[in-house]
Amino acid sequence: MNCPVCSTRLLRGSYEDVQVRACPQCRGMLVEKHKADVIKRRGERTTDELKDEVLQRLQTDTTSQLSCPRCRHMMRKSVVRCGTEFHLDSCPKCRVVWFDGGELAMFQLAYEETDQGREGLEAQRRHKEMTPAEREAFEENVAHLPEEKPLLTELFEGLLFGRGRRRFSFWD
């Protein structure tokens, strides 16, 4: 599989303990969409470490249309805004995302700027500071929480029983 930007062979690698395909030439990364969602929530790197990565790896944002390295179909462009803006290329067929060099760290920074991102990082920080006994009690309490209804069930019940509309996004 070759890089969609510079045609260099993509190498298997790891980013925050998640498997990715990386280009050694232009530093871009091909990541499965669900894995990109995992990476953005990780919170293992500090904001300063992510900013340093952006400064060291940032390449020119690819504005031209790219072909998916897996299936060769044209990828869709979407704009991410986080102080600056950049384009992500995604393949709806293969469900992969192409990040130009430095953009994966920018993607994480963009998530950290959201309310959901800040709350998630704070919850991770508090969890790490728990004693083993506190962590065990917490996990016991979580195990006893009622299960949420699946999203589709909730949506259909809303339609059937006239409940208000719910806004949702597949890419938060």
Rank of each mutant, 00 (worst) to 15 (best):
T46H: 04
Q65W: 05
E154F: 13
D17H: 13
R126Q: 12
V5Y: 01
E16G: 06
F168C: 03
L55Q: 12
R21S: 13
K35V: 11
L11I: 09
F138P: 00
K128G: 02
G101D: 02
L151E: 10
G43S: 07
S169V: 06
Q19R: 12
A137H: 07
Q124D: 07
P150K: 05
L58K: 15
Y111A: 08
R76W: 11
G83V: 04
R76H: 15
E16T: 02
V54P: 06
C94L: 05
E113G: 10
V79C: 13
C26F: 00
R135P: 00
M29Y: 06
A143D: 06
V97T: 14
V97N: 02
D100Q: 00
R95H: 13
S169W: 09
Q19V: 14
R95D: 12
G101W: 02
R95M: 10
V54N: 03
I39R: 05
T153P: 00
K40F: 04
E129N: 12
G83F: 10
E139C: 06
N141P: 00
E49H: 10
C82D: 13
R57Q: 14
V142S: 03
Y15G: 07
V38P: 00
K93Q: 11
R9L: 15
L66M: 05
L152W: 09
F168D: 04
K40V: 04
V20C: 14
R95K: 14
D37T: 10
L66I: 12
F107G: 01
Q59R: 15
Q65V: 15
L109F: 04
M1T: 04
R41M: 11
Y111L: 01
R167G: 09
A110K: 03
S64W: 01
E119F: 10
V20M: 11
L66N: 00
S7M: 02
F168K: 06
S67T: 04
P146Y: 02
E103S: 02
A133S: 12
C91E: 03
D48M: 12
D115Q: 13
V38W: 10
G120F: 06
R118K: 14
G120K: 08
D89V: 01
E147A: 14
M75A: 04
F161R: 14
E113K: 06
R135D: 05
